[in-house]
Design a protein around this nucleic acid. Structure first.
Lengths: 187, 187
DNA sequence: CCGTAATTTCAGTAATTACTGAAAATTATG
DNA sequence: CATAATTTTCAGTAATTACTGAAATTACGG
């Protein structure tokens, strides 16, 4: 790792730490970080050497990243090794990450909750539990549905929206007034 | 755990699994799940018995949940043990969780990136790395700033906004037109 | 298709994280 | 303020997860 500049080293180490806070392990976080800041695609040996872990560990880490759709694989002319890089567009990365987490964590939870809520219950405490699960289900569904929906917006619109922040409220109020004036009915 | 109804058991187990995918461990996830669906506050012994792990493990788990501000502590008249419950308002829970994750994961990352970006660089590859970090920084800052901002909205407005989904775009376009008509200049 | 380079798999081991029971600390109550 | 009930701490151990090196598999160039 001493062949990496202190700047990159620091970045890589931070991502290793962060990675282990999420499901992603340290190794995987570091590999991703390295690819992210690298100005050219790297092959597995280069990664192994730079981060000082075994070739096989790199192989597993890359497979993991691939399953998250966070790497791009390419070949260099006259070299039969595989070269890896991280997509450049940060928004695309962000969206990919969100989609994958949704698929792996949110959707199964929604399925479980939906099943639990329609179960027949015999006791009062089970009925209460179901109410709670329903509340959780509805919230998650609302948020994740919204997420899926705004994914469709183009980046520019999304940025505009985010920059507005809570000023969106004004817009919403305005919309309400317009409806009154024009007699419109749709949400 | 056989004293729990199958309904609750299933919910608790699911949260245990999910917990271990995030930083939160299985135990903590299960304790939280149990409290979440319980129709009355529980003391540590009850939790330990229901989930079949040691009293000390429960103690540590509760401390962890406390640090996430996900539990409420109360006392029952004539009982000197501490009773724990999960706040009822799912939106409040969601916000708390988001705030804590931001504080623990996002903010430190932003700090690191900000520091890295202003560092003096000597090589071209370090300069490229900085560009990448800048892009990441700006994205995270935008999203997390937006998040903080919409937190201020009342729940009703938030729900309204989410239900609109990508239809906000229409509103944004409308806003653009209005600006043209009225000659307004502000973002 | 053969030989070799590259990659993946996997059993064994190392490292980390989770969990327990006993003891210490804290807190409430008569 | 002494006692007992309750909670917390923590050292030791169990369980899990991460990592390695060797062997197997796959892919490529001739």
């Amino acid at each position: 790792m001493q062949n990496l500049s202190p700047l990159v080293q620091n970045f890589v180490l931070h991502f290793g730490e962060m990675g282990s806070r999420w499901g992603i392990n340290r190794t995987v976080g570091q590999i991703y970080a390295l690819l992210y800041v690298s100005d050219r695609p790297l092959n597995a040996d280069e990664i192994a050497e730079a981060l000082e872990f075994s070739r096989s560990n790199v192989s597993m880490g890359l497979k993991e990243l691939e399953s998250w759709r966070l790497t791009r694989l390419q070949h260099l002319p006259g070299d039969r090794r595989e070269y890896f890089s991280a997509p450049e567009d940060v928004w695309a990365i962000f969206k990919t990450l969100a989609e994958e987490r949704k698929k792996r964590e949110v959707d199964p939870t929604l399925t479980m909750l939906r099943g639990a809520v329609i179960e027949n219950t015999s006791t009062a405490s089970d009925r209460y539990a179901q109410e709670r699960m329903k509340a959780m289900h509805d919230l998650i569904e609302l948020v994740s549905g919204w997420f899926t929906d705004v994914h469709k917006l183009d980046q520019e619109t999304l940025v505009q929206l985010m920059k507005m922040g809570s000023k969106v409220q004004k817009l919403l109020e305005l919309k309400g007034k317009l409806k009154v004036v024009t007699g419109g009915k749709r949400t």
